[in-house]
Design a protein around this nucleic acid. Structure first.
Lengths: 123, 123, 123, 123
DNA sequence: GTGGTCTAGACCACA
DNA sequence: GTGGTCTAGACCACA
């Protein structure tokens, strides 16, 4: 994992795991790698990983079972809601930023289309 | 100004001023408000504002004239490049994030369109 | 059994068994279920149950007979003392906590009465 | 502060500060002692204090202002709700425990009254 | 000075 | 082995 350095690492780890849950790399009910393994995977400290997990446990996206490990929630509704929330957050962000740069609604959409097109050709 | 608290404040101030330059609220060659005034405007500490300015000066978007204040660059090409850069950064960001959430190129565009539509109705 | 997760599980198991002894579910001199059975009953690990038993044996509330199992003490005085101790501990706890929240002696009693009343109606 | 050793220290610190808020030792809007000072006061590590505060911030009972300190919420409704919640939790706890020891509703109340009476005489 | 984040390392509870 | 808590110490962002 590459760290951004502008936002806290625990926050990035959180997002990283949320992505894995949403994309199904981590399935509902599946056991997460151990805290120590995750720390190695993302090259961060165990405590930092622990902090990320704590927040996800508080949000009930992950369930912790003493001595056995951490597990992805079985509640697929929760997972769906999470996806919607993450997507909306992203869209809101671009929209507001580009709008603040004086792009009209249409320009925002077309600039995105151009970006994607350009990106496709770059391959 | 509302701070996000996950990213450094000086970074947010920087973005804020860049927006003003790009949208023309601050014109090429125009004098910026004093550091003290800016600090009041964005409700941050003078030191924090100073740090944001330093970075913009290093990027040559702002020119500091001793004893007279800070001025927006006269070089409009620089400003245009900045706009392109900011827009592209934003687009890249959403694209990658949504792509990582398994949305296809088409879904990314349509979800943005839906978002804008929905937002329009909310007014 | 539902675990609280803020206090050690062995400690909760201990309390649970003490309750059974005091309420007479487990009679003086009666044989306890096997450690393995208890572990299943309270959905905990055998080691954890064993630890709870060890403390109760040390407190002489339970007697361990090699190869035959664990037995509730025959000493009914001990059991009575235990009950008094548990009750007093509980009362002490609420009293001190509510007192620390600035409730007067009267308020503590009336708030308890209200609580019980309310609970009765909830049925 | 005396630690109980059965529940996490950060949890006890949390309760301790909540008590101070409810009893008015810490007034709405008032600045808390610095994290470092609190650590000395309760003889715990800065990180442990920080963890307690994090939970209270998440619960919006405390507001953190960068570089300036932590402040008790101005929202007195929140404080009132907290008090009710803490009191109810305590009452629920004794009630259930004593009930589990086969005390009737009446016995629970009278045993509390006796306890208080006895305590008064002990002075 | 004040809070926020991170690390390394230790020790405990539980399976 | 696995998670949870705690400490000491360091460094950064902000006022």
């Amino acid at each position: 994992m590459n760290f951004d350095d502008k936002v806290p690492i625990y926050y990035q780890i959180e997002n990283y795991i949320y992505h894995e849950i949403i994309t199904g790399t981590l399935k509902p009910g599946e056991k997460l790698p151990s805290v120590r393994q995750l720390a190695v995977d993302v090259t961060a400290n165990v405590n930092t990983v622990q902090r990320a997990l704590s927040e996800m446990i508080a949000a009930e996206m992950i369930e912790s079972k003493r001595g056995r490990g951490n597990f992805v929630t079985m509640d697929t509704t929760k997972i769906d809601q999470l996806k919607v929330k993450l997507v909306t957050t992203q869209l809101e962000r671009v929209y507001e930023q580009l709008h603040a740069l004086n792009l009209s609604d249409e320009e925002i959409v077309t600039s995105l289309q151009h970006y994607i097109q350009q990106r496709g050709q770059a391959k």
